[in-house]
Write a protein that binds this DNA or RNA. Structure first.
Lengths: 196, 196
DNA sequence: GTGTTACGGTAACACTCGTTACGGAACAGG
DNA sequence: CCTGTTCCGTAACGAGTGTTACCGTAACAC
């Protein structure tokens, strides 16, 4: 057990190093050597854990998705009402603190890297479709008597809004303070008739 | 005149080559040689026109902004009502056809490149703030009796929605057909009471 | 025609990239 | 203590990077 646990722990440490480099230095400096330096090891370990750079990035991307999915499911489970769940889940998708801001930068970096990486782009599409389906389900629960088409349209608006807000705030935190982002989220939920 | 016209025409051709590489091969393959190949010249010309790669990217970024701004101002000028202007301006920010889809991919590429490029990030912030101000002005004109804060919040929601929708559709065009994007835009305008 | 200048293609520079090969340390079984 | 195996740091390779120096050529002034 300790063997495989060590292996997966190393994989996670390297993935976190990938995120760190991606957030602080950008995609252009996301090299195997930079990742190794951020993880406090050498390129030997990196290339021993992963067959190549692509596999390293793909693992980091998948792990990031897994982590955010866990967080979202906890928020969803601990929400008191369907509408509170919808709001909480959307709120964590914004970029309102250093943690989520860094995640948004990393998210963007992976998206840009996916243009020339078949594995990353299909992973991105799978995750984004799952995310969209989740928000549709939460929206349907928050407005049980809406027809499916109305649910889908509102959910798409909410997903797009969260995605765009995160990108905007990640690139220009001073211009988009957390309070303003939340006010905007609440206004949009209210406009759609989805307030708590 | 022909001298300086040739120079700026070459600068524009090189910038278009930058966009092309960025859209088709991604940020990781955006090299001086790839740009030269896309422009049908050699690296000698590229480095003769621009002092270095950074300056080339910055010029391409600025030219992209200028072009989209011109397009937006034409749409705004030819709109019959303030609300039609708001809708038209937001609509062109989506990724509904090959042209705007490519622009969205390029936009994302520049954003990812800006993480490690001071010139690009400040340019991005300046442009995004101008864009936000424009949408605020259009929203105020579309709802003349709203208080400023309500205008600002609605405009932020619309800007975020357009930005996010473009990113989503650029990465997964099949999942987000043009009709669905437009339906979502109209639904959001209606939800905010900004329909025509 | 001739000298001058700006242009831009060629080739090379130093460097960094992903990846591979090698070698030694740590540990197991006997 | 010896031997085999696993792990991973070191060093190198070839390819590709941004950038620079050089030089042929075409256009222009006179």
């Amino acid at each position: 057990m300790s063997r495989s646990a060590d292996r997966s722990a190393q994989g996670e440490a390297l993935s976190r190093a990938v995120w760190s480099v991606l957030a602080e230095q950008g995609l252009e400096r996301l090299t195997v050597r930079a990742v190794a330096a951020a993880a406090g090891c050498t390129t030997g370990l990196v290339m021993h854990r992963f067959p190549n750079r692509q596999a390293l990035l793909l693992h980091a991307r998948q792990l990031l998705h897994e982590i955010t999915r866990n967080r979202v499911e906890e928020l969803e489970a601990s929400a008191l009402t369907p509408r509170a769940a919808l709001r909480a889940v959307l709120r964590q998708g914004l970029a309102t603190d250093p943690q989520t801001r860094q995640e948004a930068v990393v998210w963007m970096g992976f998206l840009a890297a996916a243009v020339s990486d078949e594995g990353l782009i299909s992973e991105h599409r799978r995750n984004n479709r799952a995310w969209r389906t989740r928000v549709e389900r939460l929206t349907a629960a928050a407005a049980p008597d809406w027809p499916a088409e109305r649910v889908a349209t509102a959910a798409l608006a909410l997903v797009a809004m969260a995605e765009g807000m995160a990108a905007l705030a990640a690139a220009d935190p001073e211009a988009f303070p957390a309070a303003e982002q939340e006010r905007m989220l609440d206004a949009t939920l209210a406009a759609y008739g989805l307030s708590e």
